[in-house]
Design a protein around this nucleic acid. Structure first.
Lengths: 112, 112
DNA sequence: GACCGACTTGAAGAATTCTGCAAGTGCTAA
DNA sequence: TTAGCACTTGCAGAATTCTTCAAGTCGGTC
């Protein structure tokens, strides 16, 4: 085991730590897509998207293959979707907690 | 509004993108712990641990309160554990895929 | 009060990541 | 074979994150 487990886990999550990469993965949840479509949906430079796709590829989260003139991308495993779903849940929990706290500080809405 | 959703998600995952922070969260899965214990378990400088704890606090993933001479930390929501579990699962899937591929190519040990 | 253990904070240099530009590859159509 | 679309790669400079040191706060003890 050359790479400590904690490091591997951290790298996995860090891979998800970029808005463009998150969007790509979410778009790919609906099935394989060509770069073309991702580019149309995401509003980022082509080279930038390509860099982020390379990161996802290196991390083993997506696979790609050429299909005629297009390059198709797909999630390498459906587990990726689970991870995103878990992220959504926790985001909800954390954000509502934080908002509640903010409201308390601000005294907004002042019931009781 | 102020923070696009994709950005919030990316920030959530980026918060997990550090070995020390991962270890802290895993240790806290077993229940609240004082910094003392985390420090004994993790092998990192006290100030460094404190910095990482501050990151987790700011992200709303842990809470802390003073208990006598000690400062106790706890997960702010059990959903955090779910996220870590999902990470473990996907790590398994991705790593076995990657190792299979590496074995096919050759056996030189290059970590990172 | 003086002191010590338990933590946190601030700041600066090192290391890593991001972004956009320029250039390059591969496929297909003209 | 020239041209054009669809992508990728290499490479700076900018921005962000990490790590460590020095200094500071908070509680309990002597």
């Amino acid at each position: 085991m050359s790479v400590p487990l904690y490091q591997a886990k951290a790298e996995l999550f860090r891979t998800l730590g970029h808005p463009v990469r998150i969007r790509v993965l979410e778009l790919l949840q609906d099935g394989p897509k060509p770069v073309r479509d991702l580019l149309a949906a995401i509003d980022v430079e082509a080279s930038n998207l390509s860099q982020q796709l390379a990161v996802l590829r290196r991390a083993g989260m997506v696979t790609s293959h050429r299909d005629g003139p297009l390059v198709m991308y797909a999630l390498s495993t459906p587990d990726v979707a689970d991870l995103l779903a878990a992220g959504r849940r926790i985001l909800g929990a954390v954000l509502t907690d934080r908002d509640a706290l903010l409201d308390e500080l601000r005294g907004t809405g002042g019931d009781r």
